[in-house]
Design a protein around this nucleic acid. Structure first.
Lengths: 152, 152
DNA sequence: ACAAACCCTGAAGTCACTACAGGGTCAACC
DNA sequence: GGTTGACCCTGTAGTGACTTCAGGGTTTGT
C-alpha cells in the first residue's frame, strides 16, 4: 500500500509517517522504481499502530524506541517493558500533582478578583503585582512546569 | 541596575531576560553609552516579576501580553483580566482530566503485565500490539496530548 | 485533455526557553 | 601594571514532536 493508505489505516497524518521514518521509528519501506513512491506491507502498519498507541499514552520517542527494542529482542522476561511503562506512569502521576497545585493557585487568584471593580482594585492584579515581601507564599517563582498546559 | 542584578532579584536566568526583551514582553532598557550594557530601573523589575509570576502559573506569552495590555489600559472594569485567568484555569482543568484518563490506561496496562513472563506472553505487549478490532476501547488513537508530560 | 488528488524532498515554523561560540568589559588583588 | 575571574554583548542553533510551506512530479477519474 502507498503512504496515504497506511496513514488512513493508522489514523495518522501522512507527514507524521514520513517523520517517523526520519526518526528511525519506522523501517524504510520499499520504493517504486518508477516514481519513487513508498510501498508498505502489513508489518509496517502493525509497527505504526504500535507507535501511535504509545503516543496516545503520551510516551516519548525514546520510550517507544525502548519498547520496540525490547520487543525485537523477545526476551524470556518482560521486566524491561514493564519498567518503561511504570516509569512513564510515574511521570504522568507527578504531572497530575503539579497541575492540581496549579489549579488551586488559579482558583484562589480568580476568587480574589471581585469582578466589576476597576483594574486598580482587582484582586488578581494585586496578587500578581504584589511586592516581594510575601513572595513564595502564593506564587512560588522557582517552580518548573515541564509539560506545559497549552498547545493544540 | 545591570542585567545580572535584575535577573537575581527576579530569580530568573539572564538569558531569559534578554529573551523576554526580544519577545516584546519587557520594555527596552537604557543602554550605557560606553559599553552598551543594559540599565534597568524598578519599573522593569516590577514588570519582570509580574511576568515570572504569570509563567509560574504556566500562562503563555500571549496570555501574559493580554494581561499586561489590560493593565496598561487600566479599565474601570477588570472583567478582561478575570476572563484571561479563568480561561487559563479551564485549560489546566482540561489537562488534568486528560492526564487522569491517561493514568488509568497506564495502570490497566501495567496490571496486565504479569511480570516475569516472556515478552511474547506479556499483557502489555498484547495490548499494544493487539489487532484493530478492539481499537478505541482501551487506547483511543485519535486523542491529543497538547501539553506533554515530559521534559525537564 | 484536464483537474483533483496524490506523491516527493527539504526547509522553516511552533513554544519558551537553553546553550553555545566568540567576542568585549570590569573589579579586585598581587 | 598585569592577570584572573566574573560579568556583559550579539547571534545562532538546539530542544520534541510534529506541522506547514514551497516547489515540484505522478496518478486517477471524467
Amino acid at each position: 500500500m502507498k503512504i496515504g493508505e497506511l496513514a488512513r489505516q493508522a489514523n495518522c497524518p501522512v507527514e507524521t509517517v514520513r517523520y517517523y521514518e526520519k526518526e528511525g521509528l519506522l523501517h524504510l519501506p520499499l520504493r517504486d522504481s518508477v516514481n519513487n513512491y513508498r510501498h508498505y506491507d502489513s508489518s509496517h502498519l502493525e509497527r505504526l499502530l504500535f507507535i501511535r498507541r504509545c503516543r496516545a499514552l503520551d510516551m516519548t520517542h525514546d520510550e517507544i524506541r525502548g519498547l520496540l527494542q525490547a520487543l525485537s529482542r523477545n526476551d524470556e522476561d518482560c521486566r524491561q517493558i514493564d519498567d518503561i511503562v511504570n516509569e512513564h506512569l510515574h511521570h504522568v502521576q507527578q504531572r497530575i500533582q503539579e497541575l492540581l497545585a496549579l489549579e488551586h493557585q488559579l482558583k484562589t487568584l480568580s476568587d480574589h478578583c471581585g469582578s466589576g471593580r476597576p483594574v486598580s482594585e482587582c484582586g488578581i492584579v494585586h496578587t500578581l503585582t504584589r511586592p516581594r515581601e510575601s513572595e513564595e507564599t502564593l506564587i512560588p517563582l522557582n517552580q518548573e512546569h515541564p509539560g506545559g498546559v497549552h498547545r493544540h
